[in-house]
Design a protein around this nucleic acid. Structure first.
Lengths: 264, 264
DNA sequence: CCGAATGGTTCCATTATGTGAAACTTAGTT
DNA sequence: AACTAAGTTTCACATAATGGAACCATTCGG
C-alpha cells in the first residue's frame, strides 16, 4: 500500500501496474485500476495493452477484466529452477521432513520480507504454489530472524527501517532494540527460534544457509506447534537442521558455476 | 528460440531480457547475455540495472551473475491464485486423482503451447513448481488437443501457423490436416486421447473446461502408461473426467465475479 | 425512444526517456 | 609496466512515452 518509492523509468512504472493487479487478488477491471493509479487513463491503458500483449497480463474478453498472465508463471518456474536454492535443497527437505515428521520450510530473503520457496508438510501431501511464493515478515519468523542475524551490518541497517513492526502475538518483538538483541543471540547460537511470535501456538527452529563467503543464501526451518512439541524438544533438533542447512550450502556452492568453460 | 516478433516499446524489450535470462537456466553473466543480445552494451546494461532494481532479476554480488528474481515468484504466486483455474480446481483434482489412482493434469492454453498449471501425481507425493509452470506442445498432448478442438475457428487459424510440428514419437500427428481431422473427432466426442503422441508409453484422456459462453478456460487430463492400462480402459474414465471438468467450469463460472458491489 | 452518464479506446503535439558510440575504470594477464 | 577483457558511466540525439482531449459504445434514467 501507500506510495511506492523509486519507479525507475517506464519499465518500473509498468511493473508497478503488475503489482497493482496482483494486489486485487482477482481479475480486475480497467476502471478499478484507474481509480488506484497515479497515471492518466491513456497512459494506464497503454501499459495494460503492452503488458497484455506481452503475456504478463491476461485480458478476459468476456468481461474485460485483467488478470496476471501465464508468462509470469512460466518465468517463475524458470526462476525457481535457476535462482533459488530450491532445486538443490529439494532432496534435503524431503529427507529432513521424513525423518522428523514435521513441517519444513525453505525461505529466502526478499528485501525485508521472507519468501517461502519450498515446503514439506507433515500431514497434507501437496500445497503447491499456494504456499511456495508466499511472503511473510522477517522480524518475527524463525527463518526471517536467522537470515537477518547473519547479514552484514550495513545490509541489516538498510533493512531495519523498512520494517513496520506489527504485534502479531504478545510474543512478537516489536522494537529494533529487542530484535537486535535477539539477533546477536542467534548469531552466537547459529540457530533461531520462533517462540509463537508470528502465530500463537506455532514454534520453530531455523538455521541459515550460508555461502562459503558467509553470504546469506536462505534459511531452513523445522516447524511445529505447542500442542505437539516444545521449544526444548525443537532445540534438540537444531543440530540436525543446522547440518542439513550446511549440506545444502555445500551443494549450492559446488553447483554455483559450471564455471570456466571459458576458452573452448 | 529464433527471432522474437513484436517487441512493443521499451517495456517489451526489457521483458525480452527476462526471457533471455530464463533461457539460460542458470545464473548468467553480463557478457554472456550481451553475446546473445540484439542491444548494445550500454542499453542492455541499463535494462539489467532496471530489472534488478525492480526485483525481477537478482544480481549475485559475489560473481556478478544475474538470475531471475524473487519478485517473479511473488507475482506468479498471485497469478496462480487469481487468474488460473487452479485454486478452484484444486479440490476436484484431489478427488479425481484419489479416486482414479492416476496422474491428473490441469492445463491452460498459452498461445500455441499448453501450460501445466497443476498436477496430482499417483505415486510421488510432491512435485511443486518444477511441474506447475512447465510448458508443452499443444498439438500432441491430450490437454492441448482438447483445448484446440474447442477454440473458435479464427482463433485456431491464428494458432496453427505458429506450431512447428515435431515428431516426438511415431504416433505424433505432424500435419495440419491430420490434426484438424483429429480435432473434429474430439469435438464430436467431447474428449481427447493422447495415444503416445508425445512420449512413448504415455497415454491419456482429456476433457475441456469451458465457460458458459463456450470459451476454453483450460483442460483436465487423466494420464497413465501403456504398462498399466489401455486406451479402452481410459475411455471408460472419460465420462468421469468430463463430469469433473464440467463441475470445475461451473464452479469457475459462479466464482467469476464477486460482481456488482458497484454502488455501495 | 432519446439524452446523459459511464467505461473504454484512439489521436497527436509535446517532451521526457531511452538509446548507443565512445570514453573510462577496474581487475586480470603476460 | 603494458595489455586485455569485463563492466560502468557519459552525453548528444532520436525515439518512444506522455496525457489532455476527442471519440466511440454501452448502459442508465427519464
Amino acid at each position: 500500500m501507500a506510495t511506492k518509492q523509486s519507479a525507475d523509468g517506464t519499465v518500473g512504472k509498468a511493473l508497478e501496474v503488475l503489482d497493482q493487479v496482483a494486489a486485487f487478488g482477482r481479475p480486475v477491471r480497467f476502471s478499478e485500476l484507474l481509480a488506484g493509479s497515479p497515471y492518466p487513463k491513456a497512459t494506464l491503458f497503454r501499459f495494460l495493452q503492452t503488458l497484455t500483449s506481452q503475456g504478463m497480463l491476461n485480458l478476459d474478453p468476456d468481461n474485460g477484466s485483467y488478470a496476471l498472465g501465464m508468462r509470469l508463471v512460466r518465468l517463475a518456474h524458470a526462476a525457481w529452477r535457476q535462482s533459488s536454492l530450491a532445486p538443490i535443497a529439494r532432496p534435503f527437505l524431503d529427507g529432513l521432513s521424513a525423518e522428523m515428521g514435521e513441517t519444513v520450510h525453505l525461505a529466502q530473503l526478499d528485501n525485508s520480507h521472507v519468501l517461502y520457496v519450498d515446503k514439506r508438510n507433515a500431514a497434507v501431501p501437496i500445497e503447491m504454489f499456494s504456499q511456495a511464493g508466499k511472503v511473510g515478515p522477517a522480524y518475527c519468523t524463525g527463518v526471517g530472524k536467522v537470515m537477518l542475524a547473519f547479514l552484514s551490518e550495513d545490509h541489516l541497517a538498510r533493512l531495519l527501517p523498512q520494517m513496520s513492526f506489527h504485534r502479531y502475538t504478545d510474543k512478537t518483538l516489536v522494537s529494533v532494540g529487542a530484535l537486535r538483541a535477539e539477533l546477536s543471540d542467534i548469531r552466537r547460537n547459529g540457530h533461531a527460534f520462533d517462540r509463537e511470535e508470528h502465530e500463537p501456538g506455532i514454534i520453530c527452529v531455523a538455521a541459515p544457509i550460508l555461502s562459503a563467503q558467509g553470504r546469506v543464501l536462505g534459511a531452513l526451518s523445522l516447524t511445529s506447534s505447542t500442542t505437539r512439541t516444545t521449544l526444548a524438544a525443537l532445540e534438540a533438533c537444531a543440530a540436525r537442521v543446522k547440518s542439513t542447512a550446511t549440506r545444502i550450502a555445500a551443494e549450492a556452492e559446488s553447483w554455483r558455476f559450471p564455471e570456466d568453460q571459458k576458452h573452448a
